[in-house]
């Protein structure tokens, strides 16, 4: 993310091991920031891949996705509520580790 640019409202994590590559999220995403990856995962599926920027955090891809945890959608916490819970930090760490 370039310095000084406004951060995205959302972030997206796609669990490569859980995704089966049905492509419904790609179709569903209003911002069109998900695409089909080129490589195959451990189970032989081409998986969906986040473009890395542009997510609005709307959550539609999550709702359409048939797998329980293949997609996790994060939302930007506003400056006022920035110091919310430790949960957010945890979530972010998990996200980062992937």
């Amino acid at each position: 993310m370039a310095e000084g640019k406004k951060p995205d409202r959302g972030q997206l994590r796609i669990d490569e091991a859980e995704c089966k590559g049905c492509g419904l999220c790609i179709e569903a995403c209003p911002a069109k920031v998900i695409a089909m990856g080129e490589g195959l995962n451990h189970y032989g599926y081409r998986t969906a891949v986040y473009a890395g920027a542009g997510c609005t955090g709307c959550g539609i891809c999550f709702m359409i996705c048939p797998e329980p945890g293949a997609i996790t959608v994060y939302r930007l916490v506003s400056a006022a509520g920035a110091a919310t819970t430790t949960d957010s930090a945890k979530g972010a760490t998990a996200c980062a580790s992937n």
Binding site: P7, E18, P68, G69, V73, Y74, V77, D87, S88
Partner: peptide, 29 residues
Amino acid sequence: TVQDYVVAHGRAKSFYERFERKDELQHQT
């Protein structure tokens, strides 16, 4: 860059963490 984000839509707690099915496939349906 990520610590300002919180999980908005994530895995439901009503699902088991791991699914007691075929050995290698317990993380997916």
